[in-house]
């Protein structure tokens, strides 16, 4: 069964149809890229999947269960992790504490008024950081971390509740080329090991063509192409609205 099934998704803002009847699905362990020009509806689409926006029509199913229109925190509890285009972490907490928060929330222990956080869920949090190569940074505040490291912290947070689906909005934006490759390789490895379905948007064509198993191309709210990287790269329509000649971006 597909992890995520999206059917006939629609959303309009003040008469402008941002997303028009989009359908697709993601399988366990699959890396699916969602690409398209700015304003094509990628973010709108994403925000409907994790509950930040309510679709006008259509359905979103997670492991066969209808999750359309649920609150983001409910969707998270059902097993959808999320990373953001501009990293969102708790700047006044250390890397470890950030991951502890996700674990504590997963275990529904956030109401505690007495026992200090320092002694709660520290070991599993450390293990997660270890897996992402961030153990050495555990005690540093997120507020002063380098951008590439923050992206890894976000991934650790997103993995804390053992998600079935990861939604990653431009996971490598603002990272150096080498960091991009290693982060995506790590993501792909974890996804395959744990059978997590990954849906990501991205502007870096090296990342898209290097790491996606399948690609969806959006333009003006519609799905204009879908398929394996080679096929999408060769599609003349995709070249016209999005990829261009590839001379300055590496999409050749």
């Amino acid at each position: 069964m597909a992890t995520l099934e999206v059917a006939g998704l629609e959303k309009s803002f003040g008469g402008v149809r941002a997303v028009q009847g989009i359908s697709f699905s993601v399988r366990p362990g699959e890396m699916l890229a969602l690409i398209g020009p700015n304003g094509a509806g990628k973010s709108t689409c994403f925000n409907m999947l994790n509950g930040q926006l309510r679709p006008d029509a259509g359905s979103v199913r997670l492991l066969g269960r209808e999750i359309t229109g649920m609150a983001p925190r409910t969707i998270w509890r059902l097993g959808v992790g999320r990373t953001f285009q501009i990293t969102a972490t708790f700047g006044s907490m250390t890397v470890l504490e950030n991951v502890q928060m996700a674990l504590l929330s997963h275990h529904r222990r956030l109401g505690g008024l007495w026992r200090p956080v320092a002694r709660m869920d520290a070991a599993p949090a450390r293990a997660l950081l270890e897996r992402l190569g961030m153990a050495e940074q555990a005690a540093r505040p997120c507020g002063i971390l380098a951008y590439g490291d923050l992206k890894r912290v976000e991934l650790a947070i997103a993995l804390a509740n053992q998600p079935k689906l990861l939604l990653m909005d431009e996971p490598t934006a603002g990272m150096a080329p080498q960091e991009r490759v290693s982060l995506m390789a790590l993501t792909a490895q974890i996804a395959r090991e744990s059978g997590i379905a990954v849906l990501f948007t991205e502007h870096d064509m090296d990342v898209v063509f290097g790491h996606a198993d399948r690609i969806l191309v959006l333009d003006r709210g519609r799905l204009i192409a879908e398929g394996a990287p080679a096929a999408v790269r060769a599609d003349p329509k995709v070249r016209e609205v999005y990829l261009g000649s590839g001379a300055v971006t590496g999409a050749h």
């Binding site: 907490m93 956030l110 509740n161």
Partner: peptide
């Protein structure tokens, strides 16, 4: 503090 630092992230890890 979590919801103060980042409401977006707080909501995304199930914090009301």
């Amino acid at each position: 503090r979590a919801q103060r630092d980042s409401a977006l992230r707080a909501e995304a890890i199930g914090i009301d």
